[in-house]
Design a protein around this nucleic acid. Structure first.
Lengths: 351, 351
DNA sequence: TATTAGCAGTCGATACTATAGATTGCTAGC
DNA sequence: GCTAGCAATCTATAGTATCGACTGCTAATA
């Protein structure tokens, strides 16, 4: 007897803590509702939302089980339930119905009617569109500069020991800088120097160029100086470009209830104003298309979540676009907007 | 009797509402203290701070007069007094002892050890230095592009119907853009086109160039197209550059007590995130070196103040630097830091 | 065995009261 | 003109009581 009841108990308990279809249905309804209203949800509300055929008592016991499993929390004992970070994670991984992105793509494409000539302008527009459409704060972090390929490079004499370096890259991005050159050089120098730098730099990626800085060792002094200045300039450029952050809609955060507390706002602002923290948010994203990070376990702040996607323009990665907001984020919408926008800009340069 | 007492009454009243030296002393002490502690100040505190020789009752009556004159407010009847916007205005105009800026200049100069080659880098550094040193949010708004003078301009053939326009301006700022050019042009075209554009643009200001767009009417087609593209590019550049905003230290706002209320933070963020509002803040500054705007009467938000200065690099105006914070701002410090920083960068290009 | 109705228990939110402490404004007297 | 003294005012805090929203448990039911 004793033995049997013990076994029975274990069976019951394992069953109780198994995430059945009904539990999934409850969890999904609860999170969907919480995302909209930001208030704890009671068993009665669940019943009204999606289970008119069972009583609230039944739902209560399911809620109790879900709480034991770590998916739900109660702000206090006589309150309804709210999703835990673990619940959002489960929702995002298993319950969220992906909205068909086509609609978003169509809507979003209207914003991009113009043909932009510069990556920077596309990015600025992208950030704004994402923020406006989702109603969350949006960021784009540039990256992937090491794969930029130099198409052409020219040295233009400006007189006064100055020369202008013009670089045309695979992104259509032009970087220019004035460098010092040795005194009293004739025009023949510029012709041969131009030939030299085209030979040395054209069709190479920034990565290759910066990785091999000693190629100039056996050159004549004047040429070596020019060469070194250009390598330095390119590596400065890479430094400055990688990690550049475009931000839009910081004040959107106030339209969400959890940010009525100053502490949360403080936390939020400290994240979006600290480049190091932003970079951390995309640190391990290299191989995923869409990455969702929720809560402080995943290097986002408490009560916060970040959805990020790789950002490709004309076939080449330019960085990551991301949306940052409360844990209670409308993940469906955000994912589909980010998907739509990235699709829209992906083809831009090909037109 | 009746007549006399009436006259006496008027005299008394007028005296009472005259801002005597003692009132000034009280007002200054009160504001200085409030700037630090952000709490209403009582008659006893004033006595302890700066007037041990008169009783608190006397100070009370002075405080009452200052309140009637509109310089002080009480959060409620049994509380101490706080400065009104009018009081800050009076303080800034009449009471504030200017700190000797030399000290700040010296301190600040250390930040600028490097010789920067680009205005943008100087600006970025400036914004950061100001924010770090004052512990308020700092902005620089670019402006005055119409006075930029074009030193040199070149057209570089890139092949594929593209040419690169390189512009060297009086600010050391280089602006480049790829323009479309007519097909099948030989190298002779580039030589003559280069001569033409140097003749037409060099040594002129952006203002002049943009104001007279019809100079090309009697040119050959190829040249006219190039000319128009360049004018368009320069005017795009002016548009994009004027009004560009650099911002630093938005989260500094939280270190000030009045921004423990979310409403104030909201207001603050809506100002610094709205370019139109920022531009309004420097709209009538053209003829003043330092401009202080306090409170919503002067197009700053409620409870907020802005100190702005003209920003000159190498003898030419590049825009305005400003500090934005609570009304209860440490005006002395802010004014002297802004003064110091602008002095430090003023000479930069001349070195 | 799963479900349910019913009910006691828990807790937050709200309202009301009382009290202590800070500061003022007023007044009579110096 | 200044001051001491005092009543009046108002906030902040704590304590108390009550209401209502949920839950968790239990015994009955299909």
């Amino acid at each position: 007897m004793c033995v049997f009841s013990h076994i029975l108990y274990i069976v019951c308990k394992e069953d109780r803590l198994k995430i059945s279809d009904r539990k999934k249905k409850i969890l999904r309804a609860l999170i969907d509702d919480y995302i909209v209203h930001c208030e704890p949800i009671s068993s009665n509300q669940i019943q009204a939302l999606c289970m008119p055929d069972v009583s609230s008592a039944t739902i209560r016991s399911e809620l109790g089980a879900l709480e034991d499993m770590g998916y739900l929390v109660q702000p206090h004992k006589s309150a309804g339930r709210m999703p835990s970070t673990k619940a959002y994670r489960y929702y995002v991984d298993n319950l969220m119905e992906e909205t068909e992105a086509n609609e978003q793509v169509r809507e979003v494409s209207n914003y991009f009617e113009d043909k932009f000539s510069k990556v920077e302008e596309i990015i600025r527009n992208t950030v704004k569109v994402i923020s406006d459409t989702t109603n969350y704060t949006s960021l784009v972090v540039l990256g992937g500069s090491e794969n930029i390929i130099i198409r052409d490079i020219k040295l233009v004499d400006l007189g006064d020991n100055n020369a202008l370096v013009v670089v045309i890259t695979s992104k259509g991005v032009l970087k220019d800088k004035v460098i010092d050159i040795p005194k009293n050089l004739d025009s023949k120098f510029f012709v041969s120097a131009n030939n030299m730098i085209v030979d040395m730099f054209a069709q190479k990626s920034l990565k290759e160029i910066i990785a091999a800085p000693n190629q100039a060792d056996d050159m004549l002094d004047e040429y070596r100086q020019v060469f070194k200045e250009i390598v330095l300039m390119l590596s400065d450029y890479k430094e400055a470009r990688d990690g550049q952050v475009y931000l839009e809609g910081a004040d959107k955060i106030f339209s969400h209830k959890e940010f009525e507390s100053v502490d949360n706002v403080k936390n939020f602002l400290s994240v979006i104003n600290t480049k190091a923290k932003i970079h951390q948010l995309i640190s391990d994203n290299n191989n995923v298309e869409v990455n969702i990070r929720i809560g402080s376990d995943e290097s986002v702040g408490d009560n916060m979540a970040v959805v990020s996607v790789r950002c490709v323009i004309g076939g080449e990665e330019v960085g990551h676009a991301m949306v940052i907001g409360p844990e209670r984020m409308d993940y469906k919408k955000v994912v589909s907007v980010l998907g739509g926008v990235t699709k829209a800009i992906e083809v831009m340069k090909k037109e």
